[in-house]
């Protein structure tokens, strides 16, 4: 295996593990928000934001935690046949079918990019181009130039009315990391097939 691929596996896994371990403590964030919700309801006026904030936390929790959960092997498989296969055979199948997984996550990522472009006020049919231009504007002209490109900022249709682009940005990051992790899994399977120990 080329050295840079081994480095890729190492760095991707390390980074995703770090992100996942931060997301892991999100369980206490969700708990705190929900407990505050019931405390504030009992003793003060109920808060407008708790339920929605807890929903955002839940989304961040499972999407950012996704790559780490792959590392932990937590995602079940139907092992009718798979369970009895040799590691080599498993690696063969996984190395092929992981592309289906990557395709799915790719479509999710595209949808998230498109939805995020909308939440920043872009209504056209080329969300990827919008993000590219936004990035270029930001790099060349700074926040002001990027701000120029934004239109109607989408807000959640609730009384709290939070902007939606932050949670969509979190999802983009999560799906992106998931893709990187899937690629890392593919490379690990290739390594297994080549008899390389990592």
């Amino acid at each position: 295996m080329p050295r840079f691929l081994l480095a890729y596996i190492r760095w991707t896994d390390r980074f995703n593990r770090g992100v996942g371990r931060i997301a892991m403590y999100g369980i206490f964030l969700m708990m705190a928000i929900l407990l505050w919700s019931s405390v504030s309801k009992t003793f003060f006026t109920p808060s407008l934001w708790t339920l929605e904030m807890a929903q955002f936390a839940m989304v961040a929790y499972y999407i950012l935690g996704g790559p780490y959960s792959i590392q932990l092997g937590a995602n079940v498989r139907m092992d009718l046949f798979y369970g009895d296969w040799s590691p080599r055979r498993k690696a063969w199948f996984d190395a092929c079918t992981v592309f289906l997984l990557m395709f799915y996550i790719g479509v999710l990522l595209y949808g998230a990019l498109s939805s995020a472009a909308y939440s920043l006020g872009y209504f056209g049919d080329a969300p990827l181009a919008f993000h590219r231009d936004l990035l270029i504007a930001f790099v060349t002209g700074g926040p002001d130039a990027a701000g120029e490109m934004l239109g109607f900022l989408e807000r959640s249709p609730t009384a709290w009315r939070p902007y939606l682009w932050p949670i969509k940005a979190v999802m983009i990051v999560g799906f992106g990391l998931m893709l990187l992790q899937a690629l890392s899994e593919f490379l690990k399977d290739v390594a297994t097939l080549r008899g390389v120990t990592l």
Binding site: T45, P46, S47, L48, L51, S156, P157, T158, A159
Partner: peptide, 12 residues
């Protein structure tokens, strides 16, 4: 938004 001035907590 309108009703919150009367202490209503709107939920969506």
């Amino acid at each position: 938004r309108f009703l919150s001035q009367f202490g209503v907590v709107p939920v969506t």
